[in-house]
Amino acid sequence: MIEVTDLSFTVGGAQILAPTTLTLPAGQITALIGPNGAGKSTLSRLIARVETPPPGTVRVNGRDVATTPGGLLARELAFLGQHTGLASRLRVRDLVAFGRWPHCHGRPGPADHAAIARALAEFELEPLAQRFLDTLSGGQAQRAHLAMAAAQETPWLILDEPLNNLDLAHARGLMVHLARLRDAGGSVLIVLHDLNFAAAWADHVVAMKAGAVVATGRPEAVLTGPLLSALYDTEIEVTVHGGRPLVLHHLAPA
């Protein structure tokens, strides 16, 4: 479980995140949705402690991220942020192997090699394992970074817009992978722009707007026409497909 208490974030006088108190359930896929600038990335980065500690507390499985040693937290949660565009010249296998750093500190044992092999297979990276990252396409590089986070094999996985650059096959493949992690007892927090991925795969949805959480709950409770229309200031119709919401955001209302 992740408990966020009175967490806020301000940059140069601009409030990016209003004081927020929030609980993210363990053993579920939680989708974080909302328009641009809603504070989704900031919230996920604060939980993953890659942003400097602001006022408020974040507890991951009971551990305060501000005071828990980084090495310990890295075995509790893995985080993949959005890319800055600076690519290391690492081979894919070496990058994925760095995901095991929190466990082996550079001395991989059989368990680490097995985790690296699993992650490479899971993200279909075996044919690319010996390639340099800077020779890959955006989507391939994204899969390599996802495999690194997956190889960390932590109870919590936090992904900031991981579908960027992924083609539809690999985007769905990622969600299948996350669902499998969840079924094995793992917990996932994922920032999503595509509402239908949230509708189809998430167990819990957190909607944010202008730095504040405006709704939380089951997908069918949050992903409704009125709520989404207000969230995005755009009229959005929602229908049902296979028992789950289907958001028709691409259609202009008649």
Binding site: R45, G81, L86, S88, W101
Partner: peptide, 20 residues
């Protein structure tokens, strides 16, 4: 050497892997 290479991935990635 590994620490320097991980920092080469960026400060965020290094933090996520438990390094300072």
């Amino acid at each position: 050497a590994d620490r320097f290479a991980i920092l080469g991935l960026g400060p965020e990635a290094a933090t996520a892997l438990g390094l300072n």
